[in-house]
């Protein structure tokens, strides 16, 4: 894969020393960006303009999809992929903004730690709710 070879080339470069985290973060932003470009636009268009339309979405609609005997698992997996990719991509983007706009090291560390905590909490909360309904309604 073209992206992987770029990562390997960069890592093999003699001038490059130290942690490869930022390189993988860069690569992740590209890969998740491609995936999100497809699934987020599909999600947005379907939820707004599909059935029942954005004004018709109620508790029954959401839980009904997740607990549907045929399509329930597919809905859950799709929503979980959406959550993980979108929120990881977004949180890393906010981290980039913090790196650029908070020059004080102590504050930057503090804000990045808070961001990481919010990331973990919302990711766990979101994953929990997707899988918390056991029986069909």
């Amino acid at each position: 894969m073209i992206g992987e070879s770029i990562v390997r080339q960069a890592a093999a470069r003699k001038s490059y020393r130290g942690n490869l985290f930022e390189l993988y973060a860069w690569f992740f932003m590209r890969v998740s960006g491609v995936i999100l470009g497809i699934i987020v636009l599909a999600h947005l268009m379907y939820q707004h303009f599909g059935t029942p339309g954005v004004a018709g979405i109620k508790w029954d609609t959401i839980v009904g999809r997740w607990t549907d005997p045929q399509m329930g698992t597919a809905w859950r997996i799709f929503d979980l992929i959406l959550l993980i990719f979108a929120f990881t991509h977004g949180s890393n983007g906010v981290r980039y903004v913090l790196e650029d706009y908070v020059p004080d090291r102590a504050w930057r560390t503090l804000l990045k730690t808070l961001l990481f905590l919010v990331y973990l909490i919302l990711l766990l909360a979101g994953s929990y709710i997707i899988f918390s309904f056991k029986t069909a309604i």
Binding site: I62, G90, G93, V94, L122, G126, Y128, I129
Partner: peptide, 17 residues
Amino acid sequence: LGVFTFLALHIIDIFLV
């Protein structure tokens, strides 16, 4: 940043189901 802000709120509102 706009999408991130909405996404954080969206995770919270869906958690409310």
